[in-house]
């Protein structure tokens, strides 16, 4: 009889394993959460080690002339000048987020405004033009960036904001053109035109009421990418400022890169914070898209 018992249990076990495997393989969102929680556990581990009074491996992170490796007092270690790194890292992360948010929202609104202009003036031809522009037009901010670098000055916060907003605007304008085109050929918009709606009223009553969903979902999806792009620009020195208080996360990583082997925490912690922010923002974007009923592109998450 034990064989019968075993035979009864085996399919259940197999089923459970299959379900688990299916959840792991198909439910990509589980990966995302597992990834996010993994980071939280790593952080908690670091905090626990720090609180227990043991400094992290001194062989790898040796104390230099002015700096201190992460310990119970300085969780993120200190810089060459002996400044605790937690404050600057969090401050820089805050600035980076605000910059990315500003660029995303501003760029998205600008893109939407351009598409709205095309809705009134050029319509179908304009939408096609926007779509093409969104493809090759991405080169414009890149050229602008190269020219700024070649000129040899960072020009501060504004340049970064301009480049990132430009990229967002191009992306959103191209997308908005497609949304306008789709919505314009939908039955109720055609029926509204047949009733004698003006373009302005069509836009306010029929298009904007449905367009905002696409725009919000698109902006949320762009945000983690823009944050990474902002960090990359900061790393290359675009938008560098004289005041250290105006540092951003990419700049901190670039600074820490110079002493990577002597003081790796100067790169590790800004990088870790950037990573966490990206994961959190990607999760947020995923939640926004799912709430608004927008299609989720698995390649993005």
């Amino acid at each position: 009889m034990p064989t019968v018992h075993q035979n009864r249990r085996r399919p259940k076990m197999r089923q459970m394993l299959q379900q688990l495997w299916h959840a792991l393989m198909v439910g990509w969102d589980l990966y995302l959460f597992a990834f996010g929680y993994g980071i939280v556990f790593v952080l908690l581990g670091i905090a626990a080690i720090s609180l227990s009074g043991h400094s992290m491996s001194t062989s790898a992170m040796s104390d230099g002339p002015g700096w201190t490796a992460p310990n119970a007092v300085h969780w993120f270690g200190t810089s060459r000048d002996g400044i605790d790194m937690m404050g600057p890292v969090l401050h820089a992360a805050g600035r980076s987020i605000w910059l990315a948010l500003l660029a995303t929202v501003g760029g998205s609104l600008a893109g939407l405004a351009v598409a709205t202009l095309f809705f009134f003036v050029w319509r179908e031809r304009g939408y096609r033009m926007l779509d093409r522009l969104a493809g090759w037009g991405a080169a414009i901010p890149a050229i602008f960036m190269v020219l700024t670098l070649a000129a040899g000055h960072g020009a501060g916060f504004g340049v970064t904001l301009l480049i990132l907003s430009g990229l967002c605007a191009l992306f959103v304008a191209g997308r908005s053109g497609r949304w306008f085109h789709e919505l314009e050929s939908s039955g109720d918009v055609l029926a509204a035109r047949a009733l004698g709606y003006s373009r302005r009223r069509l836009l306010i009553d029929h298009l904007f009421t449905r367009l905002w969903k696409h725009a919000a979902a698109s902006a949320a999806t762009l945000l983690p990418g823009v944050l990474l792009a902002e960090a990359a620009l900061g790393f290359t020195g675009i938008g560098a400022q004289v005041s250290p208080a105006a540092n951003r996360i990419g700049m901190l990583i670039a600074e820490g890169n110079e002493t990577l082997f002597d003081a790796p925490w100067l790169v590790f912690f800004p990088g870790l914070v950037l990573w966490i922010l990206c994961v959190v923002l990607a999760t947020f974007a995923w939640a926004v898209r799912r709430t608004l009923g927008e299609a989720i592109d698995e390649r993005l998450f």
Binding site: S186, G187, D188, A191, A192, D205
Partner: peptide, 9 residues
Amino acid sequence: FREVISQWN
């Protein structure tokens, strides 16, 4: 137009 439901907002 065809598809009556699609003509309504």
